[in-house]
Amino acid sequence: MANIWVIFKRELASYFMTPIAYVFIVIFVFLSGIFAFYMGNFFARGQADLEPFFGFHPWLYLFLIPALAMRLWAEERKTGTIELLLTLPISIPQAVVAKYLAAWVFSGIALAFTFPIWWTVNFLGDPDNGVIVASYVGSMLMAGAFLAIGACVSSLTKNQVIAFVITAVVCLIFVLSGYPLVLDFFSGWAPQFLVETISSFSFLSHFNAIAKGVIDLRDFVYFVSLIAFWLFANAVLIELKKAD
């Protein structure tokens, strides 16, 4: 536990030692605002809620989170620091969890900087703040799932661009798995239960369920088990391929 905390601190600090943190936060806040106000017709809807704001989060995360996750292991591989890190007296799961948590907390910080929009909607009307809190929780969980996928993919390569592209594609599949685009690919030949299973893997349906203000245990378990699975795969891959 102490080791996780030490690595976590180093990782989180490393975001702020480079321009990554500032670029990421500014772009994230700016884009989420743009999307909400222009494409989501925030004002024209005439409703005091943040649905247009949160509705765009899956798409925003689709290219911002892979950018955050791509460096997690690929950079360590590229610079050779992975050899330094993994010959320190720590276990691989500790390193995996600590790095992941640092990235997740960082994305949480970026999300927290969107507070002006919450303040705006409270200033203009009388929104259901419970729904907004639930939406923030859902957004965090979804970011965590994206990040876990990104961390795992990043551990496979030295090349951050490859990590970015593959993560984005895998995440896209997860986002779209409830849509015909993905389902049609399976429905022709796969049994019905498999198609339904794939459909139930969609980020969108789980996120939208939470964003409606109901944190259902099933949605929660979905995201948490997804994160656990990808982190487990991450640890296994690092163990097998750390020196390649």
């Binding site: 102490a2 180093r10 030692m17 620091t81 050899e83 320190l88 720590i90």
Partner: peptide, 23 residues
């Protein structure tokens, strides 16, 4: 390790601090 890989963004002090806590 060969070539002495290090976390290039950190200062030596911050880096040694990290190593110290891990140790």
């Amino acid at each position: 390790p060969e070539g002495a890989p290090l976390y290039a963004d950190m200062t030596p002090l911050a880096f040694l601090n990290f190593v110290a806590e891990i140790r």
